[in-house]
Design a protein around this nucleic acid. Sequence first.
DNA 1: TCCAAAAGTTTACGCGAGTAAAATTTTAGT
DNA 2: ACTAAAATTTTACTCGCGTAAACTTTTGGA
Lengths: 343, 343
Amino acid sequence: MGERKIRNMEEFAEVSGISRPTVSKYFHDPSSVRKSTRGKIEAALEEYAYRPNFYAVNQNRKLTKTIGVVVPNLADPFFAEIARNIERRCMEAGYAPTLFGSHGEPELEVEILDNLRLLKPAGVLIAPLGRVTDRKALEAFCRDVPTVLFDSNIEGLGDFFVGSDNYSFVDQTVTYLCRSGQPPCFFEMKNPANPNANKRRLAYIDKMAELGHEPQFVQIEGEGWGFEEIGRQGGLWAIENRILPCDTVLCSNDRLAIGFLSACYEKGLRVGSGAGCALRVASHDDHPYSRFTCPSLTTAAHDYDSVSGQSIEALMRAIDSEARGASREEVLYPAKLIMRASA
Amino acid sequence: MGERKIRNMEEFAEVSGISRPTVSKYFHDPSSVRKSTRGKIEAALEEYAYRPNFYAVNQNRKLTKTIGVVVPNLADPFFAEIARNIERRCMEAGYAPTLFGSHGEPELEVEILDNLRLLKPAGVLIAPLGRVTDRKALEAFCRDVPTVLFDSNIEGLGDFFVGSDNYSFVDQTVTYLCRSGQPPCFFEMKNPANPNANKRRLAYIDKMAELGHEPQFVQIEGEGWGFEEIGRQGGLWAIENRILPCDTVLCSNDRLAIGFLSACYEKGLRVGSGAGCALRVASHDDHPYSRFTCPSLTTAAHDYDSVSGQSIEALMRAIDSEARGASREEVLYPAKLIMRASA
DNA sequence: TCCAAAAGTTTACGCGAGTAAAATTTTAGT
DNA sequence: ACTAAAATTTTACTCGCGTAAACTTTTGGA
C-alpha cells in the first residue's frame, strides 16, 4: 500500500479511475454515487489513505462542518463533563467539535468568538460567562452564526437556551432540608462570578417564604472562579466567628460546598444528619467529586444528558432552519435530588 | 464604521489605499512594512474590522500557526490544569492552540492524530494514553509533525519528552513517611490505565529496599479512568476485609487517594498523623482537589509550570530546527513534597 | 541634491477543491 | 433490445490568498 504519494484530489481521482468531480461528490456524500463507483473509490482509499485538504474544502464553503463549543472554564469538572458529553454527540451527528475555554476572562471570550467566526462554524454552543459577558459582542456573533446558549442564560441572545431550572434545584434541597430538620441558611459568595448564583439566591428566598421561614444568609468574600478555596476560607471565617445562624447550611453550588466541608473537617465540625453531627450541609450541581467528599454531599443534580442532548438537538434545528432569529425558545430541566451522607 | 462590507483582501486593500501584496505582507508580519503604510492599514482595520480568510490563508502554507494539544482526558483536573497552562503559553508565543481529549480511547487518539494531520499544525503536544496507545500510528505521526510528548513517555517517540520524575515522587513520599512513622504500603490498581503507575510501583520497591523495608502492596480491581470510584471501592474492600498491612498508605496517585479517603471516612477510620488517628495516607500528583480532601492530602507535587513551560520551549525548538529526529531528549522534573494533614 | 537601497505596486500564476454546463456513458424498465 | 433517466466525464471557471518578478516610488545618508 502507498506506492505513490497522493498530493491532491486530481491524483487520487487518477489512481482510483474516477473523474475528480465524481470523487468530490463522493466525499461530500458517499451515497450520492453509484455503488460500483463507490467501490472503486473506497478500494483506492484503502490503498492510499488520501483525505481532501481541509483548508481547500472549507475555503469556498459558506459553512463548515465544525461546531464551536465554548465554556467558561475547562478546568471545572462540571463544564469538562458537559463539554465531553456535547463533544461526543457532535461527532455522532457528523460534525467536528472544537473546544474553547474562556478561563473566566470576558476579553478572552470575545477573542474566542472572533476566532470562531473565521472558522465559519455550522453552529456554536456556548455557556457564557454571564454577568461579565460582552453582550454586544455576543449579540453580533449570534446574528451571524446559529448559536445555542446553555447553562447560563443571557436574556434574548442566541436561538435557544438550554439550562437547568435553578428554582427546581433550590426547591428540592430546601424542601428536603426543612422536612428533615432545621431550615437551612444559604451559603454563597457576596459577588458571585457565575450567573446562576443570583437565581438560586432568589429561589431560596421564595421557597423559604413559601414554607414560612425567614431566609438567612452567610455571604462570603472572594473573587474569581476558585470556588473551593473561596468556600474553604469563607467556611473557616464563618466557623471561627460563629456566624452560622443555624445547624443546616445550603451552599449555592457544590464547589463552594467542597471547600466548606473541608473547613468543617479542619475545625472538627462533624457534618451529617446522624447523631453527634454538628451540621448538615447540602448543595447544588452534583459535581463529579461530590460523591467523594467527606461526608459525601447531598445535592441537586443536573440532568447532564438532557441538557447536552437538547442543546445539540436545538442547535441542529437552528442550523437547518433558514429563518433563524424568528423565535427564541428556552428549555429548563428540573433537578434531581441526590441524597447522600451530608444531610 | 463599517459603511461597506469587506469580502476579501482585495477589497480591503482598496479601502486602505494599499496594494494587496503589501497588505498580505502586513498580515504576515506587521513590522515588515513601512510605518506609514502600517498606519494606513491599521486605520482601515479600525473602520472595517477585516480579517483574512482563515482557510485561504492556510491552504497554501505548508505549516499553519496552530498547535495541537492532546491529553487523555480533559475531564481530569490534572490534565485540564496542564492543558490550560500550555494553552496560555501557546497563545503568548503567537500560536493558536487546539485542544483534544482522547477520553481514554486508543481509537479516538488515533482519529485525533489523523484529523490533526489535516490541520497542518506547526507542532503538537501530546500526553499519550500510554500502554494502549497505538505505537505505529503515533510513530508515523511524529515523523510528519514536530511532536513533544509530555506526562507519559513512549520510548523513542517524539522529538522530546517532558515529564515528571516518578522516582523523585516516590522517593520523597516514602522517605518522609518512613522518617515520620511506619513504612507505607502501596495502594494501587492491579491493572492501571495510566503509564506512570508502573514506574511509581518500581520506584516504591526500590526505595523501600534502600531503606531496609519490605514492600507491601494493596492491589485493587477496576478498569478505566474513573480512579476516584475505583479507589473508593478498593478502599472499602480493603478496610472491610482488613487487608491493609500497616497504618500508613501511599496511594499511586491523588485521584485514587481521593476515593480511598472517602472510603476511610465512610468506615469511620480517622486519617492523619495526630493522636487518635488510625491511618496515615499520602499520594502523588498534587491534584487540584487534594488540598480540599478531608483531611487535606499530603502529596508529591508536579512542577506544573516547569513541565508546561519546558514542553512549549522544546516544541518551539523542534519547530525551528530543520533537522528533526536527529536527537531525542528527555527531561524529568523532580517532585516537591506538599505536607498536609493526612500524613 | 543625488543616488542606492528599501519599500510598494502591477501583473500574473498557483494552490486544492467546489461546482455549473454540456457531452457522454451506464443503468434500469418495458 | 430499445429508450428514457440517471450517473459520470469533460471542460472550465471560481474562491481568497501567497508569492514571484519586474517595475516604480519613497526613503535616508553622504
